[in-house]
C-alpha cells in the first residue's frame, strides 16, 4: 500500500511530512487546529464541490443559441400566421362570397348576353367566373335557372308577363 510520502515522491512533490508541518506550526508558532479538523474539512469540501457539480444548472438566458433558435421559431410562426403585406385574394375568401361573385358574374353574362356591355368590373367578374368555373361546372345549368328566377324579382311585372306569354305561346 502506498503511503502519503510515497505518493508525494512519485509526484515529485515536497517531502515535508504533514506531521512535521503540524508540529512546526504548533511548537514554533503556537498555532493549533481542532481535533479531526482536516477529516471534517475534507468531507465538507467534497460535499460542497460534488453538490455543486450535481446541481449544475445552466440558465437558459445565458445560452445565446437558445435565444436565437427561440426567436427564429417565433418569427417563422409569426410570418406564417400573420401576413401583413399580403393582398386579400378572392380565392382565399369563404365559399359563400365566391359563390355570390360567381352568381353575380353569371347573372351578368346570362341577362345581358352581350360581351359589348361588359364593363371593366364585369370583365373581372367573368375571369373570376371562369377561374371558379372548374369548381362549379356541374351546377352551371342549375345556377343559370336560379339566376333567371332571381333576376325576375327585379323585373317589371308586365315584362314578366310578356316573356311568360311568349314562352308559353312558343311552347303551345
Amino acid at each position: 500500500m502506498k503511503t502519503s510520502k510515497n505518493i508525494n515522491s512519485d509526484l515529485n512533490l515536497h517531502e515535508l511530512n504533514n506531521e512535521n508541518l503540524k508540529k512546526k506550526h504548533s511548537e514554533e508558532l503556537g498555532l493549533h487546529v481542532p481535533e479531526d479538523y482536516f477529516a471534517k474539512s475534507k468531507s465538507e469540501i467534497l460535499s460542497k464541490v460534488l453538490v455543486k457539480q450535481e446541481s449544475k444548472i445552466i440558465p437558459m438566458y445565458r445560452k445565446r443559441s437558445t435565444w436565437i433558435v427561440a426567436a427564429s421559431i417565433v418569427l417563422i410562426l409569426g410570418i406564417t400566421v400573420y401576413k401583413p403585406f399580403s393582398v386579400l385574394n378572392f380565392n382565399d375568401s369563404p365559399t359563400v362570397v365566391v359563390d355570390s361573385v360567381v352568381n353575380t358574374s353569371t347573372e351578368k353574362v346570362v341577362v345581358t348576353d352581350s360581351p359589348a356591355v361588359y364593363s371593366k368590373d364585369s370583365q373581372t367578374d367573368v375571369v373570376l367566373t371562369k377561374e371558379s368555373g372548374s369548381i362549379s361546372t356541374s351546377s352551371n345549368v342549375k345556377s343559370v335557372e336560379n339566376d333567371i328566377v332571381v333576376e325576375s324579382l327585379f323585373m317589371e311585372e308586365n315584362e314578366i308577363n310578356e316573356s311568360v306569354n311568349n314562352y308559353m305561346l312558343e311552347d303551345i
Binding site: 502519503s4 504533514n18 508541518l21 503540524k22 508558532l29 487546529v33 475534507k42 467534497l46 464541490v49
Partner: peptide, 24 residues
C-alpha cells in the same frame, strides 16, 4: 483524483492560508 488531491495538499494549504489570514 480530487479526493487524493485533498489528502495530499489540504493540510499544507491550510497552514499557508492560516499564516496569512491569522485565525483558524
Amino acid at each position: 483524483a480530487f479526493k487524493k488531491l485533498l489528502d495530499l495538499y489540504q493540510e499544507r494549504l491550510y497552514w499557508h492560508i492560516r499564516k496569512l489570514v491569522i485565525t483558524h
